[in-house]
Structures are given as structure tokens and as C-alpha cells.
Amino acid sequence: MKPFAYARPADVAEAVRDVAAEPNAVFLAGGTNLVDHLKLGVARPDLVVDVRTLTSADVSDLPDGGLRLGAASTNSEVAADRRVRERYPVLAQALLAGATGQLRNTATTGGNPLQRTRCVYFADVTTPCNKREPGSGCSAVGGYTRYHAVLGTTAALPDPTAPETCIATHPSDMAVALAALDAQVQVLGPAGERTIPFTELHRLPGDDPSRDTVLEHGELITAIDLPPLPAGTRSAYRKVRDRASYAYALVSVAAVLPPGGDVRIALGSVAHRPWRATRAEELLRGAELTDHSVRAAMDAELAGAQPQPGLGGGNGFKIPLVNRTVVATLRALTSEASA
């Protein structure tokens, strides 16, 4: 680990100024991802600015009937909050499907969506990785792709030596639920406050895979707002993984089903960002949700999906798997609704 200076400013405004002033500065909240990366040499900051105790740790009611999750609230506290559990079970379930009790007691609302990919090559500084070291190439293409993207990649068979190639996925469970909930991200930056729709927070790799989100240097998430949902809305999170617990998703699905309304579907671990299945949502608008209709809608959603060959057979299984998982999740939600 490279030496770094540590600062704990008096308030968030000062924290934002501190980070903005130092190009190689980072925010520290729970630290579960950052400290991991400091040890690996994946993160090499000169200055670490601790905001853990500066933002709100509260879950509070919003005037519109929604909820505001303070950036410093822990994943455990949010998952246990009665209002979250009753009104946004998809979020509670997503949080509880993630990591472990110990990690959830530490990880925060602001930090969780900003965790970086779990691509094994990203975490190994002895291998090329465009996300970690722009322009160095992508080791994942043709390598260990089991946890990698099938949607939103640059090409069917990306060029591993090209600087834009990246087939990493975003690992957060929470983020998939927030994408389905149309959450809003409250941000404080050097230029002041702004609100970013959660679905626009994360990027596809595009021509710069090193950037996971649209946040500018020095911008800090201060809260995440959950918009109100119509009474009777059902929601669920389904995570599919090899191990029954303490494992990243092979695929995951967050679904929100307002009564008589249109279903919202977000997919996890299939792309560089939480993937809102907008094509499938469109096709299902006004339609009856049956295994058949959902499967067909998901077929359309996944029409452009690109399986990545690789060690142990690659990740082509994710395409039927995510389809089947969406079908199963919506089947459970609709049978719950009719029960």
C-alpha cells in the first residue's frame, strides 16, 4: 500500500473542497471496497478524505411520501428499516442478498453503488486492465468471464488490446434495486448540488471504461431518494449465485409491479451498469404477465446480448439464465398479487 494523507474535514462542503483540490484524492466512507483496493494497489490515492461521519446516517420521510436514505446509513440499517421493508421490499431483499452481516454493518448507502467491479483481472495489478490502467488492454476477454457482461459491451468479440474494451459488470445488488425503483441520487460537488436519476448514475464502458459513473471528481453522494410507489405495489429481488450466500450474483433481477400498472425490471451482473430492461418493459406495457409473455419480452431485451467465450465455457449461460430468472421472479410476484 502506497502512503497517503488522511483528512477528516469538519463538514461535507469542506470534504468536497478537499477532494476537488487534489486530483489524486478519494472519499472514504465504510471503506469495505476502498481498503480492499488500497491493499491490492488497485487504488493508489495521495489523499483519503473521510466522510463516514459527515453525511446523514438517517432514513427519513420525504414530503412526497418517499424516503431519503442518508449517504452514511449502513446497508444493515436500511435493510432493517420498517418503512423500507414494507414499501420497498425489493431494496431490503437486495441489500440482504449482498455481502455478509459484518460487511453490511459497515457498508453505506453512498458507498455501495460506487463499489467497483469484481472482475478478477481488475483486482490483479499484474494483469492488463483498461478500467484500472487505461489503455493497457482487457485481460478478461477470452479469460475468466463467468461474472462478466453479456449486455452493453462494445462488440461481439471485443479486441482485448483496444483501449475501450471492458466486459466488467457492476457488482452491487443494491444498485439493481435502486435502478428498478427509479431512485434519485443527491450529489454535492464543487459546483454545488445536483440530482441524478439513479438509472443515469452508472455508465457503459463507452470509450472510457475507467469511469464507472457520471460523477465528476469531487462530487459526493449525500443521499439517495426513493420515490413513492402506489399503494399495493409489489416488488422483489432475485439473486442467482453458485454459493447460497456470500457470493456475487451470476445474474440478478429486481422487479417492481404496481397494481394494474406497468412492471419495471432491472438486471444485475449482466452489464457494466445495472441494466434497466426497458425494451422488455415496453413490450409488457399493458400486457398480461405470463411466463410466455415475459419470456418473449426478455427474448427481445436480450436480442443483442453477446456471450463472452472464456475459460470453463464462458458466460453464454447467462442469457437463458437471466431470462428464466425474470420469468420466475415475475411469476412469483404476480401469483403473490393474485393470492
Partner: peptide, 29 residues
């Protein structure tokens, strides 16, 4: 069900060389 050292023959090492990626059975299994 779980354990698998996925050997990356391109570079000669186990790709998943930590306990997040090399899965050993947990209590819930």
C-alpha cells in the same frame, strides 16, 4: 458444488485467486 481454481492458461495462474472468487462452502450451503 463450489470449489474451482480456474487456471488462466494464457498467463499461467489461477484467475480466481482469493476467497471471494474461489468459493468454499459457507454455512448457508
Amino acid at each position: 458444488l463450489h470449489e474451482d481454481s480456474v487456471f488462466d492458461t494464457r498467463i499461467g495462474q489461477v484467475a480466481n485467486h482469493d476467497l471471494a472468487d474461489y468459493h468454499i462452502t459457507v454455512n448457508a450451503d
